[in-house]
Design a protein around this nucleic acid. Structure first.
Length: 494
RNA sequence: GGCAUCGUGGCCGAGUGGCUAGGCACAGCUCUGCAAAAGCUUGUACAGCGGUUCGAAUCCGCUCGAUGCCUCCA
């Protein structure tokens, strides 16, 4: 029996603004679409947080036994640089600046994206479709929306008619906006003659002669509008209505609002049952932006080559840091916060290693593992509450250390259950990884340190504390910490 | 200017109308040759001002502040 049958998962649905019990359309199967990156520059750290949240969600859904088709697109057609002025494609512009072919830019930053996600230990999505690979599907949707009267052609471009749509549907229901308010707040856009109304958005945009990325269409050469690719690809791979659609909070309006409008206009039904939005990442209390310099690339955190943080941090430490906050909360990145997370992360990893070497005893345990396990699931079932889960995990850490000290005991059965559960939550669901260096070198190093530990032990027996302290202190300077315990000395490498 | 989310102890960050989040830091204790590690103990915080309530940090209103969106932006 799959796990999900005994678990009641609740998800905060942005569309309704409430936490709802999750029920997939087809029992045991879940379709999930997440808006992926625009590959015209290095992947943004905040973007990584969004994808990491959905990676965790993907992992948990799978853990529960669901068959999940997870689609995360690559936006390689680019968005318009400035719709009102020149209609230039963002990727095409970047290409000209760097004197590259557009697809060369796309390739470079797609590789960067995959490289960073791999370091963060992301699971690959089931399908990673590209916008340029689905031009035909997008054109078909435009034709369909035109035929239903929710769009109009103007000078080689096609625009979605928001006003017409709003007469039969509710434009703005996701972001809590009302069309009349939007109209009232819009400034005069004189250069905007092609559109009937400023709220209208492009489904197809005519390509100017200098525009490099272009495809033929019934309306002439051009390229698809900003929001259409997600509608085309989510529909193609997940159906006209699917379970979960995710993305960053910043995409809620207009992007996701437009997706709903396109799908409803074309298919006559609401495309998504559960809308999920991951919140923003700030740094030192301010929004991250290249323009203000308040920005850091993921790779710069891993190498420590930056002016913001005091040292390098491993991808798993960053991941642990992000998992300590709920995905719907704004999270603030700072040196102090990462330093604190790193210590907590190391303590957790050491406790897990300790657990494996623990000797079970007796038939009773001082730690109610079954109950504890249930509360871990309870935390995750409550809208993927990873910070609460981590709080529970540290409860287990406390008990592991107490058992190690001989102050508590654990039965064989409970030890096995604890180990399995911790493994599932720490590695499978949170996606954390043990920091492992080059294994061959690590082995050699371990041998050397073990030898020094032996020598120090002898010195201590002989009360030669000058020598024993010298070994301990010099190793500490190298970042190797010796830890004296009841069962002997262990060590950890920073 | 409009819409939205939020404002928690030294720092990060959960949470509920009345009962311990957790991590990090700090202090005391246990352990130790001394330390470190580990464990134990302690912190009565919830932006401000009103209101609802027997009772609110948790509900409502206002003020201030932050962040996001309103224009490409994760």
């Amino acid at each position: 029996m799959p796990l999900y049958e005994n678990q009641e998962l609740k998800i905060y649905n942005s569309l309704t603004g409430t936490k709802e019990i999750f029920k997939p359309i087809n029992e045991g199967h879940i379709g999930m679409y997440v808006c992926g990156p625009t590959v015209y520059s290095n992947v943004h750290l905040g973007n990584c947080r969004t994808f990491m949240s959905f990676d965790m969600i993907f992992r948990y859904l799978k853990h529960l036994g669901y068959k999940v088709r997870y689609v995360r697109n690559i936006t390689d057609a680019g968005h318009l640089v400035d719709d009102a002025e020149d209609g230039e494609d963002k990727i095409a512009k970047k290409a000209r600046l760097e004197k590259l072919e557009p697809m060369e830019v796309v390739q470079r930053y797609t590789l960067d994206f995959h490289n960073i996600l791999e370091k963060f230990n992301f699971l690959p999505p089931s399908i990673e479709p590209t916008a340029t690979g689905h031009i035909i599907e997008q054109i078909e949707i435009i034709k369909d929306i035109l035929s239903k009267g929710y769009a109009y052609e103007a000078n080689g471009s096609v625009y979605f008619d928001v006003a017409a749509f709003n007469e039969t549907n509710d434009y703005g229901k996701l972001s809590g906006r009302k069309l009349e308010d939007m109209i009232a707040n819009t400034r005069e856009l004189t250069a905007q003659d092609e559109k009937k109304n400023p709220q209208d958005f492009a489904l197809w945009k005519k390509a100017e002669p200098q525009h490099i990325m272009r495809w033929p269409s019934p309306w002439g050469d051009g390229f698809p509008g900003w929001h259409l690719e997600c509608t085309a690809m989510s529909t193609k791979y997940l159906g006209e209505t699917f379970d979960i659609h995710g993305g960053g909070m910043d995409l809620k309006f207009p992007h996701h609002e437009c997706e709903i409008a396109q799908a409803e206009a074309s298919y006559g039904q609401s495309p998504v049952n559960y809308w999920m939005h991951a919140n923003m990442l700030t740094m030192n209390g301010k929004k991250m932006a290249k323009s203000t310099g308040n920005n850091i690339l993921p790779g710069e955190i891993f190498t420590g080559e930056n002016k913001i943080l005091s040292k390098a941090f491993a991808p798993s430490v960053v991941r642990f840091f992000m998992m300590q906050a709920h995905y719907t909360s704004i999270l603030d990145l700072s040196d102090d916060a990462l330093l604190a997370s790193e210590k907590g992360f190391n303590r957790l990893m050491e406790a897990f290693a300790t657990l494996q070497s623990l000797t079970p005893a007796g038939s009773n345990s001082d730690f109610d593992v079954t109950n504890w396990k249930a509360s871990c699931y309870e935390a995750m079932n409550d809208d993927f509450n990873t910070p609460i889960l981590i709080a529970h995990i540290f409860e287990a850490v406390k008990h592991i250390n107490l058992i190690k000290e001989g102050k508590e005991q654990i039965s064989e059965v409970d030890k096995t259950q604890l180990e399995e559960t911790l493994h599932a939550f720490i590695f499978d669901i949170l996606g954390l990884q043990q920091n492992t260096g080059n294994s061959k070198d690590t082995e050699k190093l371990s041998g050397v340190v073990e030898l020094l530990i032996e020598l120090r032990k002898d010195a201590r027996v002989n009360k030669d504390f000058a020598t024993s302290d010298r070994i301990r202190d010099q190793l500490a300077e190298l970042g190797i910490q010796l830890k004296d315990g009841k069962e002997g000395t262990t060590f950890s490498i920073q």
